[in-house]
């Protein structure tokens, strides 16, 4: 009597019908008709996405002159050369460190802020607005703002250090500090969006779940880790994927704050591609790097979907 057969039948029927759908065949007429609908978007995507991608891959297989014209077919030797170049490997490592740092701190801080801002307290609206305000700040404004803060003699950090009689940190000239400087700036930029999305997710968790848990004896801490986190895990997954992809593609802040320096300490892949192509005129190498970056981002995203997606969807 527990296993109401009707629901089980219903579930089986549903599975069966979805199987049927996957083997559904289009007849010839429908095929042409469907092309009519797909046509416009295929055309635009092909022209502006697929063609440049294929062309980039094509260029990466050649040597190029300074105008970007292909000269000698080089096969995969561009790849081999890059993957053994210490300079490029440094860029890879730096990029990975940056991506991990940015993703971790963005998620941790915005989760903390979102959790605080979800409490029903007087004046909480002010904080919600403040926390999400970086969404409206442009990269260049943020970069200038943070350059002032990082300034070793007149910056905010320097003033505090001086007041405490400490030596001010050379944020932008010391290689290991420069990495922190760009991570801090990027995290600050990311917070607004991530905060808002996570706040939305936390607010949509049904209140009765918390009520049921508190009647059953769960502490607020237990409720956060055993209810809030699992309930918002699909959103966390989405936000982390976006943050990772965004961090890999980071360009503006790096160009404005460190220009990849000092001594290549913040020379991320995208910035490197830009310099190789438009400063050194080495289009073949830049194209090769672009392809490698694409593969890395795709691999990261695939891995995330493979290992995390099942766990977060309930």
């Amino acid at each position: 009597m527990l296993k109401s057969p009707t629901t089980e039948e219903a579930i089986e029927k549903k599975q069966a019908s979805s199987k049927k759908r996957s083997t559904f065949k289009l007849n010839a007429n429908d095929k042409y008709f469907s092309l009519l609908f797909l046509g416009p978007s295929l055309l635009i995507l092909g022209l502006f996405v697929f063609y440049p991608m294929i062309k980039t891959f094509y260029i990466s297989m050649f040597l190029t002159n300074t105008l970007g014209k292909t000269s000698v077919f080089a096969g995969f030797s561009n790849y081999a050369e890059l993957l053994t170049s210490p300079d490029f490997l440094n860029s890879l490592v730096v990029t990975l460190a940056y991506v991990l740092g940015v993703t971790f701190f963005t998620l941790a801080i915005s989760l903390l802020l979102a959790n605080l801002a979800s409490k029903k307290l007087p004046g909480i609206g002010i904080f919600r607005t403040l926390y999400s305000v970086t969404m409206g700040v442009s990269v260049s404004v943020a970069a200038i703002f943070w350059l002032f803060i990082f300034n070793p003699s007149t910056g905010f950090f320097a003033i505090i250090a001086n007041a405490l009689k400490l030596t001010p940190i050379n944020w932008l000239t010391d290689p290991s500090n420069a990495m922190w400087a760009v991570i801090i700036t990027t995290v600050w930029m990311n917070l607004g969006f991530t905060f808002l999305i996570l706040l939305g997710a936390i607010e949509s968790v049904p209140q009765t779940l918390y009520e049921a848990a508190s009647v059953e004896g769960a502490s607020p801490r237990f409720q956060f880790f055993k209810i809030t986190l699992p309930m918002i895990s699909p959103t966390l997954f989405f936000v982390s994927t976006i943050t990772i992809i965004d961090a890999f593609k980071s360009f503006g802040l790096i160009d404005l704050i460190t220009k990849g320096g000092p001594t290549n300490a913040t020379n991320m892949l995208v910035y490197r591609i830009y310099k190789d192509a438009f400063y050194s005129g080495n289009y073949a190498q830049a194209s090769t790097e672009a392809i490698i970056l694409t593969v890395i981002i795709a691999a990261f995203t695939l891995l995330q979907f493979k290992f995390l997606e099942k766990k977060v969807n309930y």
Partner: peptide, 8 residues
């Protein structure tokens, strides 16, 4: 609403 945890 039963207040069941959908992920458990």
């Amino acid at each position: 609403s039963y207040a069941l945890f959908p992920f458990l």
